[in-house]
Write a protein that binds this DNA or RNA. Structure first.
Lengths: 336, 336
DNA sequence: CTGAAAGCGCTTACAG
DNA sequence: CTGAAAGCGCTTACAG
């Protein structure tokens, strides 16, 4: 496809008066004489040479590229996660390929295969399908929120504690009958612990509670199926002009937002009639106040930790199998 | 770095009993006999072969990878844009490298250089620095919202119309003294037309108006410098308990959000005392109602158009130099 | 139509 | 320490 006339390692070798092997060595920080090193570096600068990552990757089996699989970038939490992952990788001279799976198993597998074919050095993933069998032991991979088969490194927020804090907060502010509403995958992941923490706290306090589960659809969309189901459920919870619950904990801020808008439309006052706590801790447009009261995930810390772990795996160093990062309650005006 | 034992084109050639050239041909949809094609396809399936993009790229000067440069993924607008760009590219079997520039010129240039070195087939960029000189005529590139030097393909929303609609809406709902508040780059871009449209509409209506400009900081951050400056400005606009303006148009929803929160803290009622219209048309957490009244950009259409244009450029087909996509007003409760 | 061979830009043993 | 050479997995003229 046309000569693009790129400066190659040959050009700098000729310019510096050394062999390509020597140039390669200074490129890779392998010892050469100071004189040669200087000559080469000068030529590199003079010619504006940049190594061709793909040629290097072809031979060296490494591309300095990492892929991240997330459901989408519509959910602000994933967008923030990817943002900070890119930032951390960029500092280590790694590039980031973004793969939106839309929670489709085929897409997740396709991206995992890409990684297996040495197209990327490693993989960070937030997946919700059962694609364990497609992994391979020698593939550097860090999973967020989800347990793959044993030995796959996993990073998550303290979901159990988050659920517990949410329930405790609702109880402590006077709720008598609370509900945990969730949607998303049922795959063996850390996020399921949000419900466990919630239930344990309710049991301990001896309060009335229940849980309600919605579909696998993880990309909540305006006007989507899950929104519709959730709204129907909320309407059913209205008996004789009274809402069944005085406190709601949701599996994400997005789901919480949908619920808040529906309850308001139904004429309920938040937080006086019903209190709501979400999960994620997102700010309005990411710059304003907290959109709703929530359990805040340490998203930047999760991103940095994932990248650090992945780098260790790529370098064949040992890493902790599971890293749990602390969460905190944030007040967004939907609790009393 | 260790044998990863990947299936190569040689393996399928041997398995199918043909030469690697023949395999390559079926891979690239070049005609071979039906019998051979079938044999090869069977071997590919049987062995689970996938082409190595980098080896292919090395020879063919094409990597099926595109890079996108955006300031960050914290701004929901950019996150959505990247989301839809990835979606469109994925359908054409292209991969997407995400490059956050944080509006730093060095980073923008580094990413442009990467593209020039054939690491990617093309570039989609949302940049705000003056990096024209680093482009090259044979580099497929689509710019969003910004004019590079002549002949660089640009896609944008109808910024002029957006500004005009905003002013007209404010005037029509009774405002007597309105202001356009913006932040971000002053580089020759389409977004500057938001102010022009606003001003023209004000002039035409003969209404009092003014404009206020803040720093180059494009990544608005909670607690950041721009937020501070904006808040100081708003306080100064409060004279004897009365706010100077009854209508505000902002250069983005994010900036609008910051202003709304500050005005509320100052005890003003929105939209009764002051009406606000932003730009972007973002929904609460992307799933809820519009966060504020706004000029909605056709973000998905912008993404798809950019990808289509880029594909044409990669294939050396002609494209329109400038594509303007329509905007619309959306009511988010901050207007009357 | 098909195969053999050269070559894309690197890295890496291997001699020297 | 350095250079010559092989080879990473492909594609692409070139003969046949």
């Amino acid at each position: 496809m046309g000569v693009r006339n790129v400066i190659t390692i040959k050009d700098v070798a000729k310019d510096a008066g050394v062999s390509v092997g020597t140039v390669s060595k200074v490129l890779n920080n392998i010892y050469v004489t100071v004189a040669n090193k200087e000559k080469v570096e000068q030529s590199i600068k003079g010619l504006g040479y940049q190594v061709n990552t793909y040629a290097r990757g072809l031979k060296a089996q490494r591309t300095n590229t990492v892929a991240i699989i997330v459901p989408d970038l519509i959910s602000p939490f994933f967008a923030l996660l990817v943002n900070y992952v890119e930032q951390a990788l960029s500092e280590m001279n790694y590039k980031l390929l973004i793969c939106n799976s839309y929670c489709k198993k085929e897409k997740e597998i396709a991206y995992i295969n890409m990684a297996k074919q040495n197209k990327v050095d490693g993989l960070i993933c937030v997946t919700y399908s059962n694609s364990d069998e497609y992994l391979r032991d020698d593939l550097p991979i860090v999973s967020i929120d989800r347990h793959f088969k044993p030995k796959v490194c996993c990073v998550a927020s303290d979901n159990y504690r988050g659920g517990k804090i949410a329930a405790e907060k609702l109880i402590e502010t006077g709720c008598k009958n609370i509900v945990f509403i969730r949607n998303g995958s049922n795959i063996n992941g850390e996020t399921l612990k949000r419900g466990k923490g919630f239930i344990d706290a309710c049991e301990k306090a001896g309060i009335d509670y229940c849980t309600k589960e919605f579909g696998e659809e993880t990309t909540l969309e305006k006007g989507g199926e899950t929104e519709h189901k959730v709204c129907c459920f909320l309407e059913q919870c209205m008996k004789n002009g009274k809402f069944l619950y005085d406190g709601i904990f949701t599996s994400s801020d997005s789901l919480g937002q949908i619920i808040i808008e529906k309850l308001k439309k139904m004429g309920l006052n938040i937080p006086m009639d019903v209190q709501i706590i979400g999960y994620d801790g997102l700010r309005a447009l990411n710059v304003g106040a907290y959109q709703l009261s929530s359990i805040k995930q340490p998203v930047k810390d999760m991103a940095v930790t994932s990248v650090n772990h992945l780098m260790k795996l790529i370098n064949k160093e040992p890493v902790d199998e599971l890293t749990i990062l602390p969460v905190s309650f944030v007040d967004g005006g939907t609790t009393r």
